[in-house]
Amino acid sequence: MRTRSVGSVIRLSLLVLVIAGAGCKHPAPVTQAPPAPAAPPAQPTVTLQATPANIQSGQSVTLRWTSTNATTLTLGPAIGAVAAEGTSTVAPTDSTTYTITATGPGGSADASAHVTVASAAPAPAPTSPSATLEEMFTREMQDAYFDLDKADIRADAKQALSKSAQFLRSYPQIKVALEGHCDERGSTEYNLALGDRRAQAAKDYMVSLGVPADRMQTVSYGKEKPFCNEHTEACWQQNRRAHFAMAK
């Protein structure tokens, strides 16, 4: 009750001040032109393209979008908030309609792009017949990236691991070493533990996608084998990953 009465007193005081202030002011001359009405906020616009629009399962598509007058953009399914313009690489396993929603002070706008996914071609996978298995492995397998101090599989890591699982399902003869890596900021010892958790989390997700556990051997390298040696967040992100290496 006390807070309410205090608030009432403050509001009352403000009212008195406003009235007093108004009373002291000279009235505005009536001849002054009325202020121009504020322009209404501009309506957002947004475009979305998918290239190519027709793929085989396992291939990837580049989504490219632009927008104007938008403060937030949400790209779906399963991508989330994105910048005002940009690109994202996705590898849908089924035909998918991607939708981007732009929201701003002037309202909202949508744009969509449909990607048609043909069912997986019979092995060999749709790659150059001259490519070796190692070359295809390097080209098709995608590593999972992690947040600082975390071993949780992010949305982008789910996409990457889905693509990698697709490849491994197509080539059942391949076994992999699943390496956990960390950026340089934690201690050597902590990073050995964290890298282990990342490799294990990626392995568990691959198993959930149908890749047999006995085809993936995890190993943690902590911060001992960085992919990038600069002291920047861009570099650190490169080093926070679960990396696939073809087992010999």
């Binding site: 010892e189 050995l192 533990a193 964290l194 282990d196 958790r197 294990q200 943690s220």
Partner: peptide, 8 residues
């Protein structure tokens, strides 16, 4: 430290 049972 060991992850012999899964978690470190």
């Amino acid at each position: 430290m060991s992850s012999m049972y899964g978690n470190p």
